[in-house]
């Protein structure tokens, strides 16, 4: 089973990297960009075949190690959904 975890900064947390990318894109002539937020993606291959079990495991992974819930949100995608 293939899982993808999308980690983003919470909306209320300033994202200086996103701001830098925003300015760089503007400098390259890309107009009309209102905001850029940068996150990260973690791909995890699981031996588990039960989707709901996998989902519970992934939530625990996110809550303990993969994200810092003080500043980050996460979304779990399993087999593309």
């Amino acid at each position: 089973m293939q899982a993808r975890i999308h980690i983003t900064l919470k909306p209320e947390v300033l994202d200086p990297q996103g701001k830098a990318v925003l300015h760089a894109l503007g400098g390259l002539g890309f107009g009309g960009i209102e905001d850029v937020r940068q996150g990260k993606t973690i791909d995890i291959t699981l031996a588990e075949t039960d989707r709901s079990v996998a989902e519970q495991d992934l939530i625990r992974m996110c809550e303990t190690l993969l994200t810092n819930t003080v500043i980050e949100n996460y979304e779990i995608e399993i087999d593309g959904i």
């Binding site: 947390v13 300033l14 200086p16 990297q17 830098a20 810092n68 003080v70 500043i71």
Partner: peptide
């Protein structure tokens, strides 16, 4: 300790 240490605003 509460909170988090994020990347410096200046990058």
């Amino acid at each position: 300790l509460p909170g988090a240490l994020m990347r410096n605003a200046s990058l």
